[in-house]
Write a protein that binds this DNA or RNA. Structure first.
Lengths: 204, 204
DNA sequence: TAAAAATATGAGCCAAAGCTCGCATTGCCA
DNA sequence: TGGCAATGCGAGCTTTGGCTCATATTTTTA
């Protein structure tokens, strides 16, 4: 199925329409649930006719795909920026920064994130998510290899995988069923402890 | 919406029909995906008429609910049995057993598990899953409290939550995108290391 | 300013899927 | 063996929601 947008907006007005559709789609998804997120409802909330909607997106899946893309790109962009200069920093500090970055990333649109993560399969975002976690895995593995001498001897690839999955799962899960925890320093602290102790870093 | 089965089977034959429907539903879900899992298709695969299907389930959601219930009960039952006598064992051994149990649990119907976990929202199994993880949390917290003297000083409730979420996420994720890892002793070993080192247990 | 291009509209088409209902068949019991 | 209850059947009703298309409006261009 074709998921690419149907036309590139040439005038400002159509660009606005395009934005309105995506915004409305995300809003309906969050506020009314996947079931209510029909193309007609999205068009209505966007203040746009159903015909216009289909001038920009070839089908409903393309809308969902665009939302997922944008959301994941947002997250990955933030994470990438936050971890750019990590290589130079000492381990404990790098871990703190990484954990903080993942927490920040989950604070952007937590409600949209919750809906999307529960419905990724339905909305066809599985492969995108797995590609994203793959990128994170490579990032962390690269870093651990640089610091190999400072951590206990382990299978670096496996260790990186374990850390990426754990950290993301903990923060993701907290976002979903205990958002108030996200803000507490104890929470971030314990995740750092989990990581540093696993790696065998002293004084964690 | 009513999700309870419509009638209790009185004769052996109807019991078989009921089983056939649930089995077929799980099979279609796994082999053909959620989209193809229509009530008509399920009835067809079950070798049963659509009319019969609706004699046992008031609606499609009830079928999905029954599958989720059965699957989660299976998992929770296994986990419960496997962790019954954990309290007496030393920490390192208890952790090994717990991790092994969670791995075993994920080996039962990994394919069904994958589909269900990706579609829980759609199929209405969110609350059931969260109740299950809540039970696991209580289980682990109770155990940690018994062993409080042997672990480093931490917020026991938070620690239990972190461990339950991490261990489950790691094994769950491995089930989904690296099933071959599940069998390796190194995998289980590293998860145990993660847990024991976090708790500050010596010699892990 | 007039034609052409871009954009917007929304009634309604159509396929898909959940589900019903009247009838057929099978099994149980006196 | 006759009759009643339980179970099984499947054509098709109904709703829903994705999507089209003929037409209208706005903007650009020459």
């Amino acid at each position: 199925m074709n998921l690419t947008p149907r036309k590139q907006p040439k005038q400002g007005r159509s660009r606005a329409t395009w934005e309105a559709i995506l915004t409305a789609a995300a809003q309906v998804l969050v506020a009314e649930g996947v079931d209510r997120a029909t193309t007609n409802r999205i068009a209505e909330v966007a203040g746009v006719s159903i015909g216009s909607l289909y001038q920009y997106f070839p089908n409903k899946a393309a809308i969902m795909s665009a939302i997922i893309d944008r959301h994941l790109e947002d997250m990955l962009g933030m994470l990438g920026r936050a971890t750019l200069e990590l290589a130079d920093r000492p381990l404990a500090e790098a871990v703190r920064h990484y954990v903080a970055a993942v927490i920040e990333v989950h604070k952007v649109h937590p409600d949209l994130h919750r809906v999307l993560s529960r419905q990724l399969g339905l909305l066809g975002g599985d492969d995108k998510l797995s590609e994203m976690s793959h990128r994170a895995h490579k990032l962390v593995r690269g870093y651990l290899e640089l610091r190999r001498s400072e951590i206990r001897a382990v299978d670096i690839d496996l260790a990186a995988w374990i850390l990426v999955v754990s950290v993301d799962a903990l923060i993701h899960q907290a976002t979903i069923d205990a958002p108030e925890r996200l803000a507490t320093p104890a929470f971030a602290g314990e995740i750092c402890a989990l990581v540093l102790r696993y790696l065998g870093v002293e004084g964690a």
